[in-house]
Design a protein around this nucleic acid. Structure first.
Lengths: 333, 333
DNA sequence: CTGTTAGCGCATTCAT
DNA sequence: ATGAATGCGCTAACAG
């Protein structure tokens, strides 16, 4: 069934030239006489020859693939980012390898592995906890951070603190003064940035983030529902809640509605991310949009540029977030 | 900055053995004396040697990676499947390459490319339109279909027709007789299977699928909202709707609620997939669960087995779906 | 158990 | 413009 696939030798023999010429005809068509080029291409057609990428890459010392290290593949948040990555990598001649650091017993070891396995031409890392200083001393292919990151490495980031501040200001402008916050997991960079942005905006208005109005979540839907339970248990309930992710906002609103609380009637809710369902919930969720596809596309471009320039350094980019006003926020009272 | 990474030669020199022994000490530790093995491992530590996978794979005639061809990476439906794939592939020593066939100008050419580029050890294909007979004649690595598929190739599938039938029966048992269906895109295998399953179950009850109660969608949220508009325009409205995807169900319910229609008060809705938000919508969505992570895991196992056995054929598996009763379905009237 | 010898399939010198 | 020769870095035969 599996006939031996044609090699460069077969093409050379069939077209009556040397393997070197075949190689050139394919890789540098201009360095070869038109007639021979045609003969070679014809032979390629006939044999169905396709260069073995392994051998080619070994020789060229490049692999043609780029690795994305994501903290949790199952999180749909990444699907659009990956799609963006893929859409620019693919035309640029790179394959996209994906590894899930959450599923990995030792993600740092995996990163180290890819550093010198010669398996990838570059990496996009979505997990800020990964690159420790010792690791980064080692020789490695170009690496781009694609998450909140303040270190030396080039990065594509979203302005999380500003996004959170925009969310809080929107609540403030709508007349809210009693504002709660559902955070991501403690210690996470995103969590801390958004927390800080929110606190800052609150402070500008002379308000503070109460401890008992700050619920710790994990960005997932279920943790939003749990936060709702805690909100319900409060004697003195905030009139608005800023959730650090749309998923949590979704879980929060869902649980509240189950409990007979009206949104935004009795409490306003604002999210973060603008995931696809956000606009189709009832009420439609007001949120801070993160252009995920753009993030992927920009990351891919920057990384490919670094590879082309054989440089470990390169520009960083900050991607703007945007307030999307829908129906889940209204004036209190 | 980028010091030359140590090669097998360096290790051999440092440990005072030949490169062949180093290779063995690492790949087949049992075939080497304990003392030499230790010496080699020590030298590996010292030099920080990591085998170049390209060279190794070229020699071993395997690549260590598996390609997943998905029709639309941006669709979060795939994220859990990919996560499942990754979680078994990774421990099995395979990397996961991903290509988006939607983003590709000529997906079939891409498939062909991977067939003989020698770049992958196996493929998981999520798009039934891809493998055309001519293509499959060619030499290629093991390939597993992971979507509705009735051809010769080994596959992992979900029983779509049965799932649809279960959905319809549930509606029937709840007392509904006037049942609408929001389909996927026409021509799509999933669409047709679910349509057929739904029609079959209806027929068992002596009912038929009315043309004007069959709304064509595309599995996306927006198309569900559009279907809602058409439902609203009906003089004679069905009391229940089976949506061929949860996303459409979500868009459908959202649009209805915006229009002031109560769900399930005035119309019951049942979805398909059991995506994560389904249980957190208001009302929580009754649906047919497709165990997406399992699909990924099973696909990975089957494919790895085929690779191990150097066989293009292998068993197929059918994964059961399950009715998840929540709140979006109740008796009519 | 270990070293020697040969490639894996291709791209690139260096000649011509 | 083309061909011959030479590895890329590693592993698998084959001897010993």
């Amino acid at each position: 069934m599996r006939q031996k696939t044609a090699g460069i030798q077969d093409v050379a023999r069939l077209s009556g030239v040397s393997t070197a010429t075949v190689s050139r005809a394919l890789s540098h068509p201009e360095r070869v006489a038109e007639s021979t080029r045609e003969a070679v291409l014809r032979a390629v057609q006939e044999t169905g020859y396709v260069a073995n990428s392994l051998a080619r890459n070994l020789r060229r010392r490049r692999t043609g693939s780029i690795l994305a290290l994501v903290p949790n593949l199952a999180n749909p948040f990444f699907s659009q980012i990956l799609s963006g990555l893929s859409s620019v990598l693919s035309p640029a001649g790179y394959g996209l390898l994906i590894a899930d650091t959450l599923a990995d017993p030792d993600p740092r070891a995996r990163l180290a592995h890819y550093f010198d396995s010669g398996l990838v031409d570059g990496l996009v890392v979505f997990d800020a906890t990964l690159p420790d200083p010792a690791l980064m001393q080692r020789a490695h292919p170009p690496l781009l951070m694609a998450c909140e990151w303040r270190g030396e490495l080039p990065s594509v980031t979203v302005d999380n603190a500003e996004g959170a501040a925009i969310a809080i200001r929107h609540l403030l402008e709508s007349g809210h003064r009693r504002i709660a916050h559902v955070t991501g997991p403690r210690g996470n960079v995103l969590t801390e940035s958004r927390l800080q942005g929110a606190a800052g905006a609150l402070a500008e208005a002379g308000l503070a983030l109460h401890d008992d109005w700050t619920f710790t979540g994990d960005f997932g839907i279920a943790s939003g529902a749990q936060a709702a339970a805690r909100w319900l248990a409060l004697a003195d309930r905030p009139t608005a809640v800023f959730c650090a992710s749309d998923e949590m906002a979704c879980g929060f609103m869902g649980a509240l509605q189950q409990a007979g609380i009206a949104v935004p009637g009795e409490v306003s809710v604002i999210g973060f991310d603008d995931i696809e369902v956000a606009g189709h919930l009832t009420p439609a969720l007001t949120t801070i949009r993160q252009p995920r596809r753009d993030i992927g596309e920009r990351a891919a471009h920057l990384l490919v540029d670094m590879i082309d320039q054989r440089s470990l350094m390169g520009p960083s980019e900050r991607i703007a977030v945007e307030l999307i006003r829908r129906q889940s926020v209204k004036s209190p009272g």
